[in-house]
Amino acid sequence: MALEGVTPTLSFPRSESVTSVRIVRGSPADVERVLGAGLRPETPLPLFLRIGFPRPLAVQGTGLAIDDMRHIHFSGAESDGPGDLVLRVAKTGPGYVRFERVSDDSHLRQWMAWEVSEVRWREVSPGRTEVRWTIQFARRLDPAWYFGPWERFAVKQAADYLIVADAEPR
């Protein structure tokens, strides 16, 4: 177990996927409008993500059309300064959008490689919409038996946050 991650042959798979699901008040059109307006970084982070993780400070970019961009500026952590995660709308459809990473020079890159965010939404009853946010990433910390569960937990918290900060109508 102590050698896990030292070489590729001694490494567990690094690809991970985490999904969060939440019912929000509002129609699918409301959710789509809010998603198109972009992340609201003033939304409070979950408690776990407030204990030293980089925080989103500002966001540039709106829209849900193919090639629309999001530049999310994060605070730094430890000795690393602030940086940006840049996402591009790669695919859209009714009740669906896929964001793919263009670049990442935020401190997050030391722990994980953010790859894809997929958001799906559908009406479950009048005025109530289910939002499903999936984040695909690659774990960059070893050993997997220790860091894997912590990274999945942190990314699940991030997906929960993204539903509230980027998809929930207010």
Rank of each mutant, 00 (worst) to 15 (best):
R14S: 08
G148Y: 06
G76Q: 07
T7S: 01
V34C: 00
D104T: 10
G38E: 02
R70V: 09
S27Q: 13
E42W: 01
R25Y: 09
Y96P: 12
P8D: 00
T43A: 06
S11G: 06
W150H: 15
V102W: 04
L87R: 06
L141Y: 04
F74M: 14
D166C: 11
P8Y: 05
L45Y: 02
S11Y: 03
H73D: 15
P54W: 09
P44I: 01
V119L: 12
K156M: 12
Q60P: 12
L3E: 08
D67Y: 01
T92M: 04
Y161Q: 09
E42S: 11
R70A: 05
A144R: 12
S17N: 10
Q110R: 15
F99V: 08
G52Y: 02
L87C: 09
E4A: 10
G76I: 00
E32G: 09
A29T: 12
P13T: 05
R55Y: 10
E16P: 00
A158E: 14
A144W: 14
S117K: 06
I72N: 00
R14D: 08
F153K: 14
G61L: 10
F74Y: 15
V131I: 08
S75N: 04
R152A: 07
I135G: 02
S117I: 13
V18C: 00
R170V: 15
G83C: 11
